[in-house]
């Protein structure tokens, strides 16, 4: 177990293994994405209130749900960096931050476009929206702190601390702004406890899209992690061999 753990921390091992994983992630991702998008665009019945804007949900909800995972992920990676000094954890933390900013931005943009129709406004200082925006700012803070600190190890640890603090703060922000102002509907697109549960033709494609976007996140994270590994390990034997082989 311990051996496996320390092995996982080795960038070289991860690089080799992730190379094998990638096709198995990209394949299902493409499949789910194609099925999900066609289903969402063509087969989902228009909502009785929102009509065809419901199709925006199939992009917005997956992105919004994964955006919430970034701070916990970075805080977890940061804790591992601080406690066990695992190299790979910091690579995850470093590559996740910009991806998180992009995912959050897309969740905000799609939500804003959706809101422009159904709420009657592009932007409102609603609890959800505001906390997402602030999460976006905090992610930018983590990214800029990383780029400002020149010493890579100090940057890794500083970002780890900031991610942990930020994670707590994102939770507090979420509660405080919810309490401040809320228009956003509760996020239970497939809660079955409602008196009128959402029908399967609405939630099945949504589940498909959520899995597709999660896989997409995994693929893009692994791709940028591999690049980061190549840059960090550029002086090592195995990277030089790999470079010469191409």
């Amino acid at each position: 177990m311990w051996l496996w753990f320390s092995k996982l921390g080795s960038p070289k091992w991860f690089y080799e293994l992730s190379g094998k994983w990638l096709p198995w992630l990209i394949g299902p991702m493409a499949l789910l994405l194609i099925v999900g998008i066609i289903w969402a665009l063509l087969f989902v019945p228009p909502d009785y209130q929102q009509g065809n804007t419901i199709r925006i949900m199939y992009i917005h909800v997956p992105f919004a749900s994964i955006s919430l995972a970034f701070f916990p992920l970075m805080a977890l990676a940061g804790t591992i960096t601080l406690v066990w000094r695992m190299k790979l954890a910091d690579i995850v933390a470093k590559t996740a931050a910009p991806l998180g900013a992009w995912f959050t931005a897309l969740a905000l943009a799609s939500g804003s476009i959706w809101g422009s129709d159904i709420w009657g406004t592009w932007w409102i200082w609603d609890g959800r929206l505001t906390s997402m925006l602030l999460q976006f700012f905090l992610l930018i803070g983590v990214i800029s702190l990383r780029s400002a600190l020149e010493d890579a190890e100090a940057a890794a640890k500083a970002c780890a601390v900031l991610s942990i603090v930020g994670c707590i703060n994102v939770i507090v922000i979420k509660y405080s702004v919810d309490w401040w102002n809320t228009l956003h509907q509760p996020s239970s697109p497939f809660s079955l406890s409602n008196e009128a549960p959402n029908p399967p033709e609405v939630w099945i494609p949504l589940v498909i899209m959520i899995f597709a976007v999660y896989l997409f996140f995994a693929v893009s994270l692994i791709l940028s992690m591999r690049n980061e590994i190549l840059v960090r390990e550029r002086r090592s034997e195995w990277v030089q061999q790999l470079v010469q082989a191409t």
Binding site: P45, P46, D47, Y48, Q49, Q50, I54, M57, I118, W119, G120, T121, I124, L183, Q185, P186, S187, S188, P189, S191, N194, A196, N198, P199, E201, V202
Partner: peptide, 17 residues
């Protein structure tokens, strides 16, 4: 000064409605 529609989390088609 502003009117906002509040939507719930239940989605259904016209027929179901």
């Amino acid at each position: 000064s502003r009117v906002l529609a509040k939507h719930d989390e239940n989605y259904m088609s016209q027929e179901v409605k």
